[in-house]
Structures are given as C-alpha cells and as structure tokens.
Computed example of a mutant assay.
Amino acid sequence: MKVFYFSWQGLLALLLCLVAAFLLPLIATGTEDPISPGVTMLVFFLIIVSSILSQTTLPPAITAAILFIGAHEAAWLLLTGIAGNEGAARPSFFLLISAAWLLAWRCVSLLAGIQPSSTFTSWLLKLVIPAIFGAWILIIWEATTRGGGIPFILLPPPSAIGLRIVDSLPILAADVRQTILKAVVVGYIIGCSSGFIVAILADRVAFLRRGLIPIGNLVSALPIIGVAPVMVMWFGFDWQSKAAVVVIMTFFPMLVNTVAGLAAAGNMERDLMRTYASNYTQTLLKLRLPAAAPFIFNALKINSTLALIGAIVAEFFGTPIVGMGFRIAIEGGRMNVDMVWAEVAVAAVSGSVFYGVITLVERMTTFWHPSIRGS
C-alpha cells in the first residue's frame, strides 16, 4: 500500500526550512523585541510537520486542512514577530515565509483537485481558493514591507492600510456615498439603459446602425481627462458632472455589444420564426434578445469597472469636499499614503462586489447558455 506521495512544494518547503535553520536568527541581533526562541521553534515545527504530511496519501481534504493551518499559523507568528522590528529581518525570516507560501500553494492545489459532492461544497471551494490566494498576496506584501524596511511613503504594509480603514470609516462611507451611490449608480443606469435602447433602434433602422457604430468607436477613444473638465463646466461641481462622465463611458460599450448580440441569432432560427409568422417584436423578444444576453451582460460587466474609474478620475477636476477621487488627490498631496491606499482598497472591493453581483445575475438569468452550463 502506497503511503507517501511526491509533492515538490512540500519538499522545497522542507529544504528552505533546513537552510533557514543554519542561518538563524530570524531578526538581526540587537533589536528591542526579537522573536523568542519558543516562537521560532514553533514556526519550524509547523512548517516541518506540514511539509512531511504533504507527502502522505491522506485524503486531500484532510491534507489541505493541515497545510492551511500550518502555513497560515507559521506566517502569522512570523508577521507578529517582525512588527516593531521593521528592516531587521534576516534571510532566514524570508526563507520561512517562502516555505509557508509553498505549503499554501500545495493546499490550494489540493483544494482545486477536489471534486465537489454538492452545490454547497462547490460554492465553498470557489470562495476558499481565491481567498487563500488573496490572503497570501497580503502576507507577502506585509512581510516584504516590514521585513525589508521599505519606507512607509513608498509602500505602506496592508496592516497599516487596514487600520486606517477602521479609523476612517465615517469618511470612507461619505466618499462611497458621493462617488458610488450617486455618480456611479446613476450614470451606470442611464448609460447602460440608453445604450441598450439606442441599440434596439439601430438594429431596427439600418442608417442608424451604420452611422452610430463608427461614432461610438470614436467617442469610446476619448480620454477621460479631456471629457471630465468639460462635464464639470456643463453640469457643475457636484455628482451630476461625474454621472455625465459615467454615461459617456458606459453608453457606447453597451451599444456596440448589444448590436453585435442581436446579430448573433442563427439564420435557421430566424427562418423558423418566420415560418411561425412572427413579427419583429416577437422575434426580438423570443429569439434575438435571449441570444444577445451574453453580449449584454458582457457590456454590463465591462461598464461596472469603467463607471467606477470614470467617476473617480472625474472628481480630480472639481468636486465638493467629499468623494473618493477628491480624497485620493488631497491625501496624496499631503503624503498620507495610507489614506490613499485605503480609498484604493475600498474602490477595489466596491468594484469587485459590483462585478460579482452582475455575474451572479447573469448566471441566474442565462443558465441555459452553453457558456454558463460549462462553467
């Protein structure tokens, strides 16, 4: 009976751990709060045991759980030990962080190979795997900035950004309300809906289709920094001018994608509708719009990111004393880089949630499409 299984991540992690043992200590001598020998031994124990168990033929779920605990507990101990000793990390510290990262890599590989037995398990894996991947981006970021002593003004550690977010929740909430709930949402709805309506008209009227598409390609190439000041002069400094920028940025992607989607229905299906004596409206509602649904949702997902970018950039050219773009510009000038990164993080999370909601709606409404059934 086979007991051991070859895992190159586990073997390499074990090798890095052994090399780090010869290069101790983890932090340069003479620091005020060095990592204690007990914590150091616990880190070595976690990595070595996890590396050995990664070579066994235990069930993948059990092995992944062991690797998850070992890798993240070791990383947590190392990061808490380097806090307050910025720039004092020795090569052994980075070797152990790398070993823990390899174990997390092996954990993700095992989770990705598990065949889900239920819908809940499938959704759980889809959440856990990206979460581990994202967590290790932050762990490596934290270890690099604190262990390498990177100046705060150049790149603050994620922990400092998170602390700034917690301390500035009222300010961030006001900025989100001004930028996203007003400018982005209003501009997104107007831009996408008007682009969809005009696409229906362009599909119905040939000269509109031939005239609007080239203009759409031209307008979509306009730089935001050229459009935003004009919209501010036209609509004022409040959120209405930013919504106008969002409308311009989202209108033509929706127009072009919807027109292309309406042309996606096959000739055989159209001939079948004609044999049923269907008029244009019936063919549009029952055949062509369902066939265009993937194109329309593709435009909605593209516009979800364009809308956020457009609103934030537009706020650089005039806004009341609130808004994400305003805050980034002001705090950047004051060298408060942690606040700038806090706004960037909130914008990234908001955009990801926006995109995820649209993707969820797409899966619920176009479950019949081959692109959804096969994913």
Rank of each mutant, 00 (worst) to 15 (best):
L67E: 09
F326Y: 15
A243Y: 05
I153K: 09
T29K: 12
G84L: 10
G30D: 09
A206Q: 14
L181G: 11
L103V: 03
V344R: 02
G81D: 08
P151R: 07
I165K: 09
N267T: 07
I215Y: 14
V361A: 14
I197W: 05
Q115E: 14
Y5K: 07
L67P: 07
W136A: 00
I52E: 08
P59T: 07
P116F: 01
M233I: 08
N257K: 09
L12H: 02
W136S: 02
T283L: 11
G10D: 10
F235A: 12
F207R: 05
K301L: 07
L212G: 07
G333M: 10
G266N: 10
L16Y: 00
G134H: 01
A345L: 15
I215P: 10
N336C: 12
P290T: 08
V313E: 11
S241H: 05
N217F: 07
T319Y: 11
P294T: 06
N267F: 05
S371D: 05
F316A: 15
N303D: 11
P91G: 15
T319H: 15
V3R: 04
A99Y: 01
I161S: 07
T359C: 09
T29D: 13
E86V: 11
T275K: 04
V19R: 00
T258A: 14
S118Q: 04
A183P: 02
F237N: 11
M254I: 04
A61V: 12
V353K: 01
A199R: 09
S220T: 02
T63W: 03
I48C: 11
V349R: 10
L272R: 06
P59I: 08
V186S: 08
Q9K: 03
I27T: 06
R363K: 15
N279Y: 05
P156C: 08
V246K: 03
G195W: 03
N298P: 01
P157W: 01
A263C: 02
G84M: 06
Q178V: 02
A263T: 01
L154C: 11
P223F: 04
L77C: 09
V219H: 10
S278F: 13
L272E: 06
R363F: 13
R288V: 12
G226A: 14
E86D: 13
M249G: 06
M273G: 08
M339T: 06
E343Y: 04
C192Q: 13
P37F: 01
P34D: 04
L12C: 05
G261A: 12
V19W: 03
L308S: 02
L308R: 02
A345T: 15
W136D: 01
A99L: 03
L102T: 05
W123Q: 12
A83I: 05
D238K: 00
N257Q: 13
